[in-house]
Design a protein around this nucleic acid. Sequence first.
DNA 1: ACAGGTTGTCAAAAATTGATAAATGCCATT
DNA 2: AATGGCATTTATCAATTTTTGACAACCTGT
Lengths: 227, 227
Amino acid sequence: MTSILIIDDEPQIRRFLQIGLSSQGYQIFESPNGGQGLSIAALEVPDMIILDLGLPDIDGQDVLKQLREFYSGPIIVLSVRNSENEKVTALDSGANDYMVKPFGIKELLARIRSLLRLYGDKQAISPVFDDGNLHIDLANRRVHVGEDEVKLSRKEFDLLRMLMTYSGRIVTQQQLLKEIWGDSHAEDSHYLRIFIGKIRTKLGDDPSNPKYIETEPGVGYRFLPTV
Amino acid sequence: MTSILIIDDEPQIRRFLQIGLSSQGYQIFESPNGGQGLSIAALEVPDMIILDLGLPDIDGQDVLKQLREFYSGPIIVLSVRNSENEKVTALDSGANDYMVKPFGIKELLARIRSLLRLYGDKQAISPVFDDGNLHIDLANRRVHVGEDEVKLSRKEFDLLRMLMTYSGRIVTQQQLLKEIWGDSHAEDSHYLRIFIGKIRTKLGDDPSNPKYIETEPGVGYRFLPTV
DNA sequence: ACAGGTTGTCAAAAATTGATAAATGCCATT
DNA sequence: AATGGCATTTATCAATTTTTGACAACCTGT
């Protein structure tokens, strides 16, 4: 889920943004001042920050500069002042957009989408597993063993992906079955054995001495993280 | 040198921008209308485009959409109308910023710097594919195999373009169908096979041993980047 | 050692998906 | 109204995947 941090001292603005943004499915963090905002940004690493320049504790432009020392995501700056100098300073300090209050929520949402789109494919680093032998690229649906590409069918790949995303942890048979075959097949653990078997064969894995997929009898399976 | 294309019908605005921007060392291209603007964008591939929505020949929003079919750099939209709907439409059609006239040159320069910084090294994905045999020019809708021009129909070309813009990554059947045939045909994967087939024939590609378009069974298709 | 349950493997049947050809219908241009 | 190009529909065959069923191996507690 995409998360957005709002740093603004006015409770009514925070509330306005909270409602407008969370209704679009964004997860919201809030801070009424600069200090707390900086620590939330550092701790939670939101996907985007909306920063009001008029803050009670630290000057907004300073907050912006400090954010940019460690935060590389998009930042939208809000201000009541329609001052060209302030805009220039903010944009040159690393803000990606500057909006003058009051503004319409639709415009804000459109600018958020625009920035997320831009940053989105920039961080197109897809989750990849690689231990020197096995290479799995989840986003591109590619699996290699050594130099050779391994072709996995849709269900095989879905299964492997689910195990990989819970890497190191057990995924129960029911979870796997419900996710991949649907609720109606939640009991058909037979399917699992067959498909896990196919994947193991293709990856060159041995159930009794597993390198990648370990059976947890009576419970489920676990993808072993690289040691 | 960084180049910027200005598409605006008002001579005084063009002059205002010409002076303000070239004084900062940008190289300026100008067009007083949409049609010429599109061809300059295709020919010169500027580092940024500034587009006025009120154009005499083509509707500005249409120019924007057509630009986005082949141009991936930053686009700033100008308008005399401070309409929220227009802003939302423009931003969702791929504009990176929207400024209401009149505006200050300093603010514009700051926004230009901000966008160029953001796009930075990400330099526009080349709108041309060429591997020595196949040559695809997205901007001019031209495809050549060897010396011969290959004529693709509208849907064929749209399909190829979409695969090319996600080059190397998989594009799902649903994505392709929704984008090209519309939401109502999101299930008709049948269409896809036929059109992919046509394209493959025209490009001289073989599905079982693909040079250009690879099938990912059950999922979608992938345009193979030049190795 | 044995029963009962679970797990892994194999192979064939059934279902889905993909590629391609050909017929039909639509629409803009002339 | 005729034409030609394109999109859509229909049909068919091939390939792959998924499901099904049968069976051996294994663990666990008695």
